[in-house]
Computed example of a mutant assay.
Amino acid sequence: MSSGTPDVYTPDIYTHGHQPSVVAQHARRTAEDCAAFARPVIKPDAQILDVGCGPASITVGLARWAHQGHVTGIETGGDILATAAAAVVDAGVDNVTLAEASVYELPYDDDTFDIAYAHQVAQHLSNPVAAFAEMARVVRPGGHVAVRDSDYSTMRGYPSSTEITRWREVYRQVCRHNGAEPDAGRHLFSWFREAGLGDVVMSASVWQFWTPEARSNWGHSWADRCLTTSFARQAVEYGYATEAEMGRISAGWRAWADNPDGYFHFIHAEALARITA
Rank of each mutant, 00 (worst) to 15 (best):
G4C: 02
D7Y: 14
D7Q: 15
T10D: 10
P11V: 08
P11R: 14
D12T: 12
H18M: 09
H18R: 07
P20F: 05
P20H: 05
V22N: 07
V23D: 03
T30C: 02
D33F: 09
D33P: 02
A46D: 10
Q47I: 14
D50V: 09
G52Y: 11
G54H: 02
P55E: 05
S57P: 07
I58F: 05
G61A: 04
G61N: 08
A63E: 06
R64A: 10
R64L: 14
W65T: 15
W65M: 10
H67D: 13
Q68N: 10
E75N: 11
G77L: 06
I80T: 03
T83W: 00
V88E: 00
V88C: 01
V93T: 00
N95Q: 03
L98M: 01
L98T: 00
A99N: 02
Y104M: 04
Y104I: 08
L106H: 14
L106C: 15
P107G: 14
D109P: 14
D114A: 06
D114Q: 09
A116F: 07
Q120A: 14
V121H: 03
A122T: 15
Q123R: 08
A130T: 09
A131I: 11
F132I: 08
E134Y: 11
A136P: 10
R137D: 01
V138S: 03
R140V: 10
P141V: 01
G142H: 06
G143Q: 02
G143Y: 07
G143R: 03
H144Q: 02
V145D: 07
D149I: 14
D149P: 08
S150R: 12
D151V: 13
D151E: 14
S153G: 15
R156W: 12
R156P: 00
Y158D: 07
P159R: 01
S160M: 06
S160E: 11
S161W: 01
S161M: 01
T162H: 08
E163F: 08
I164N: 04
I164K: 02
W167T: 10
V170W: 00
Y171F: 15
Y171N: 13
R176G: 07
A180C: 12
A184N: 10
F189I: 04
E194W: 00
L197V: 09
G198H: 12
M202S: 07
Q208T: 15
Q208R: 13
F209P: 08
T211R: 04
A214Y: 09
H220R: 05
A223F: 05
C226H: 12
C226P: 05
T229F: 04
F231K: 08
F231V: 13
A232F: 09
R233W: 06
A235P: 09
Y240L: 12
G247W: 09
R248D: 13
I249T: 13
A251S: 09
A251N: 05
W253A: 02
A257D: 01
G262A: 15
Y263F: 14
F264P: 01
F264C: 02
A269E: 12
A271L: 10
A271E: 09
R274F: 06
I275M: 06
A277P: 15
A277M: 09
